[in-house]
């Protein structure tokens, strides 16, 4: 397990838990980094506020990889502008492409996401596109130069779990890049299930931020992700289509 690294765009990570920081507090970041070992935290880019002197960067320890997203972008052009601004903010070359035209369900626009991936990968970004799980789109993202693919499990912030399970499994089976399940994971069991399926990592925010005891839930997610990863590496036991198969010897006991 010690050599089991998550590799994204040539960068190695030990943790397979990515923290979204939309709903953030010192407590969440501390729990995620110190207790759950998160090494990647997402950020958004917004118009700077001259009155607000506090910055989320004050809360994030050294050595954490920052993953700026392009939230707020409605098309590829806006996503590219946001990504370039994020890089100019001086925290590395990673970018999570997030393009949404719809504010009710916040579903990603796959076609614009492919365009933005192509442009940004050519500019040297480590591109991690958030997408609606579709094999053809995932293949286009690979060809466009993506470093991972981030399919949604269910709508952002819904905590509804693996609604797109079958389609994420297809991506895991067919796409030769880390598949990172992003959005909608609400419980540790769902994170564990996605990892058992072969997902490379889990991104979560709302599931932690809205939990009763935030540090305890963060720790539960850490354990679930690690358990799921181990189960995947171990190889799951087979499932019988019908009947039963004794796990104990049935012969030679209390009978001739």
């Amino acid at each position: 397990m010690n050599n089991d690294k998550l590799i994204i765009g040539g960068h190695e990570f030990n943790s397979r838990f990515i923290l979204g920081s939309g709903k953030y507090s010192m407590k969440l970041i501390e729990a995620a980094v110190k207790d759950a070992g998160a090494e990647i935290i997402t950020l958004a880019v917004r118009r700077a506020n001259t009155k607000e002197q506090e910055s989320i960067l004050d809360y994030i320890p050294e050595g954490i990889t920052l993953l700026p997203n392009t939230s707020g972008a409605r098309n590829a052009e806006e996503a590219v502008r946001i990504a370039r601004l994020a890089r100019e903010l001086g925290c590395g070359d990673f970018v999570k492409i997030e393009i949404m035209r719809d504010s009710k369900y916040l579903l990603p626009d796959n076609q614009e996401t492919i365009k933005a991936t192509d442009i940004l990968a050519n500019e040297g970004f480590v591109v991690m596109p958030y997408m609606y799980p579709d094999l053809n789109v995932a293949r286009d993202l690979v060809n466009a130069g993506a470093s991972s693919v981030m399919p949604l499990a269910s709508p952002i912030g819904s905590n509804k779990g693996l609604a797109t399970k079958e389609f994420i499994q297809i991506l895991i089976d067919e796409i030769d890049l880390p598949i990172i399940v992003d959005a909608g994971i609400g419980r540790p069991s769902q994170a564990c299930e996605a990892m058992e399926m072969g997902a490379a990592a889990i991104m979560a925010n709302t599931a932690l931020a809205t939990a009763g005891d935030l540090p305890m839930m963060t720790s539960a997610f850490k354990n679930a992700i690690e358990a799921g990863r181990k189960a995947y590496l171990a190889g799951l036991g087979r499932v019988l289509t019908r009947g039963a198969s004794a796990s104990d010897p049935l012969t030679g006991f209390l009978r001739d």
Binding site: G22, K23, Y24, L43, V45, R46, L57, L66, A86, N205
Partner: peptide, 10 residues
């Protein structure tokens, strides 16, 4: 002109 900074975000 846009002047931007990082904020929390998923």
């Amino acid at each position: 002109v846009e002047v931007v900074s990082f904020v929390g975000g998923g």
